[in-house]
């Protein structure tokens, strides 16, 4: 699978790949939840490449984000990885279908008809080349080798560099469109619980209970985990005192948080679980009370 995801990256094939994660490695835990494939979604295929990965927290979101995933894939001509937790994959929940048109359905950009010469990978009107379908009259070449704007294999460093710059830029210059996240009670928060998927639901429940006890706790739920919302997390790091990152792995998301936060005085802690169970609100509350956390040792 990973090799062909790389193919989709280099040939700029719009596609959505769903990975409902189970506990691993290998046959691991059939079929219990785990969030062990976050880094795999980012780096699983070989070679440097940008990628988009979305992560729903509910069945409703699974429905809506699937539409978003296809839209992003078509708009930016990139594979989009749809990461799910096993519990969400198997969950039955009420879904309110959006009215037709409420979530727009984007079509890929096609080249105009009747061009003398169609350059399938040229930077014409933007960073995302128009895409012709086979059989529509433009005969061209698609390959997993590095290629020139005409689609033919190349070893020329200038063409290869140009390609890398373009495919990274088409994602990096559109972060406002690609990054989806949900903030709750962040205005006055001293502690933020940052998470994704099923863990975010425990985080939100825990944060509400903590608020009831008078603690200033908020949540940041990432729906786009790749590209990582670096600026959002960096800004958060300059406003809050503590960031808690619960996740069903040994600490994949927390590394990104540590990488982005520039203030050493901000305490960043994790809760990790790998045994096939989920993290509960009680566990999160307990961690928030822990003596070793700054602000708790009075």
């Amino acid at each position: 699978m990973q090799e062909n995801l790389g193919y989709a990256c280099i040939a700029e094939v719009p596609c959505v790949v769903v990975n409902v994660q189970r506990g691993g490695p290998s046959t691991g835990l059939p079929t219990s939840p785990a969030q062990g494939d976050l880094m795999q979604a980012r780096w699983g295929t070989h070679g440097d490449h940008p990628i988009i990965a979305l992560y729903p927290t509910s069945v409703q979101e699974a429905f809506e984000l699937t539409m978003v995933a296809f839209n992003l894939a078509e708009k930016y001509r990139t594979p989009v990885i749809f990461l799910m937790d096993e519990v969400i994959g198997h969950m039955r929940e009420k879904v309110v279908f959006p009215r037709e048109g409420q979530i727009p359905v984007l079509e890929r950009r096609k080249p105009p008809k009747g061009l003398d010469k169609f350059q399938p990978f040229a930077e014409d009107d933007g960073l995302v080349p128009a895409m012709a379908a086979f059989g529509e009259g433009y005969r061209y070449h698609v390959t997993g080798l590095h290629h020139d704007p005409a689609g033919y294999p190349t070893l020329r460093p200038d063409e290869i560099n140009r390609w890398f710059e373009r495919v990274f830029a088409k994602i990096e210059q559109n972060l406002d469109d690609i990054l989806l996240y949900r903030e709750e009670d962040l205005e006055d928060a001293e502690t933020v619980i940052l998470s994704c998927g099923i863990t975010a639901r425990a985080a939100r429940a825990a944060a509400r209970q903590a608020r009831e006890q008078g603690r200033k706790v908020g949540t940041l739920t990432l729906q786009t985990i790749w590209p990582f919302p670096e600026k959002v997390v960096r800004d958060l790091g300059s406003r809050v005192r503590r960031i808690l990152v619960p996740e069903l792995n040994r600490g994949q998301l927390i590394r990104e948080v540590q990488r982005c936060v520039r203030h050493p005085e901000v305490a960043i802690g994790g809760i990790n679980r790998l045994d096939g169970g989920v993290i509960t609100p009680a566990q999160i509350l307990e961690k928030l009370e822990e003596r070793s956390w700054p602000g708790n040792s009075h």
Binding site: E3, N4, G135, G137, R139, Y140, V142, T143, G144
Partner: peptide, 28 residues
């Protein structure tokens, strides 16, 4: 020509499509 899609994998044989004026797809 417009109706032909020539698909290959990888190998010396796999390099065949790039030379021909069909719709060509060199895969993995």
């Amino acid at each position: 020509k417009d109706d032909v899609v020539l698909v290959s994998g990888i190998g010396c044989t796999g390099r065949m499509p790039v030379y021909v004026d069909f719709n060509t797809l060199h895969t993995t």
